[in-house]
Simulated scan of single mutants.
Amino acid sequence: MINKLRRGFKSLFSSLAHWARDYHDEQLLATGALLSKQQYLMNSSNIHDYEFKIFSQFGDDGIIQYLIKHVEIENETFIEFGVEDYMESNTRFLLLNNNWSGYVMDGSANAMNRLGGQSWYWKHALEKKAAFIDKNNINELLSYSGFSNLGLLHIDLDGNDYYILETIDFERYNPSILVLEYNAVFGKERAISVPYDPTFVRTKKHYSNLYFGASLPALTHEAERKGYKLVACNLAGNNAYFIREDLMTDRFKALTAKEAFVESKFRESRAEDHSLSLLSGEKRLELIKGLEVFNVISKQTEKL
């Protein structure tokens, strides 16, 4: 009898938790829809003024809403990878608010299973795949989406981002908007990335959690080679926004990496015991100084 009661209470609490989460998401979506519509009333030339956060980590939901209003989109499709379980991501609001079709990937099968169990998953054209991405498999993995001429591509791997950007078949995927995560700790002067490692995991590569990805100049260098112009970074200083060159209009100004660079202020550094050490500013760079980086222009290995 007691076990039956326990199971009953467990089921009740689980149902209440699901209801509360769904209600919370509905309220967020309603707020986001209002904020998105409000952008039509604004007349600022500063993309930062359009930032707002619904499901993104920072203000990226607002930036993306602004861009899709002013960039020609052939297909309302997106690909994002490195999404964990997708609860906090840069394309979830695009999926739920604008009803775009999407394809997401993450290296964790458990995370992708949690995504598949969400109450709203069946309501939208979202495909998912659990996979650890490297240069040898990225284009095969992307091909499962069935997409071409994307509306938006977002790369967020916390590791080999530069090399994956370099390898992707842009002739096929040809996104109108390209979103790239950069490592602001690497600064705005050097076009550098961590050296390529197909097994790269940020939290294992260096205890600090600061040694990952590529600098904004490195990513901008490769994006420009592929025909994209840098138009903004978010205020948080971790995501950069590029528009395909043939879709640029007078509304947007092409920026250099130095012009667009925003220094991150969030404090995610770790001590050797894996606890948060909360370093900021130049102290972050000092912690990883001397580690090897790859200069994407000279193609030489250097030291931080």
Score class of each variant (00 low, 15 high):
12 L>F: 12
15 S>A: 06
15 S>F: 04
18 H>A: 14
21 R>I: 04
23 Y>D: 12
25 D>S: 01
26 E>R: 06
29 L>E: 14
30 A>M: 10
31 T>D: 06
33 A>R: 11
33 A>K: 13
34 L>E: 11
34 L>T: 14
34 L>A: 13
35 L>E: 13
37 K>S: 12
37 K>I: 07
38 Q>F: 15
40 Y>T: 15
41 L>N: 15
41 L>F: 15
42 M>E: 11
42 M>G: 08
43 N>A: 13
49 D>V: 05
52 F>V: 03
53 K>R: 11
55 F>A: 13
55 F>P: 14
56 S>T: 03
60 D>V: 03
62 G>Y: 00
62 G>N: 00
62 G>T: 01
64 I>K: 05
64 I>W: 07
65 Q>T: 03
66 Y>T: 02
67 L>H: 05
69 K>H: 08
72 E>L: 02
74 E>I: 15
76 E>K: 15
76 E>Q: 12
76 E>W: 08
77 T>R: 10
78 F>L: 01
83 V>M: 09
84 E>N: 10
84 E>Y: 11
87 M>A: 06
90 N>L: 12
93 F>N: 03
93 F>D: 02
94 L>Q: 07
97 N>P: 07
97 N>Q: 12
98 N>Q: 07
98 N>H: 04
98 N>P: 00
100 W>A: 10
100 W>R: 07
101 S>G: 13
101 S>Y: 07
101 S>C: 12
101 S>T: 10
102 G>H: 11
103 Y>E: 02
104 V>P: 02
104 V>Q: 02
107 G>V: 01
107 G>Y: 07
118 Q>A: 04
118 Q>G: 03
120 W>D: 15
125 A>P: 07
128 K>T: 11
129 K>P: 00
131 A>L: 06
133 I>R: 04
136 N>Y: 01
137 N>M: 14
138 I>G: 01
138 I>E: 07
138 I>V: 09
139 N>L: 03
139 N>Y: 02
141 L>V: 12
142 L>D: 14
142 L>Q: 15
142 L>K: 14
147 F>Y: 10
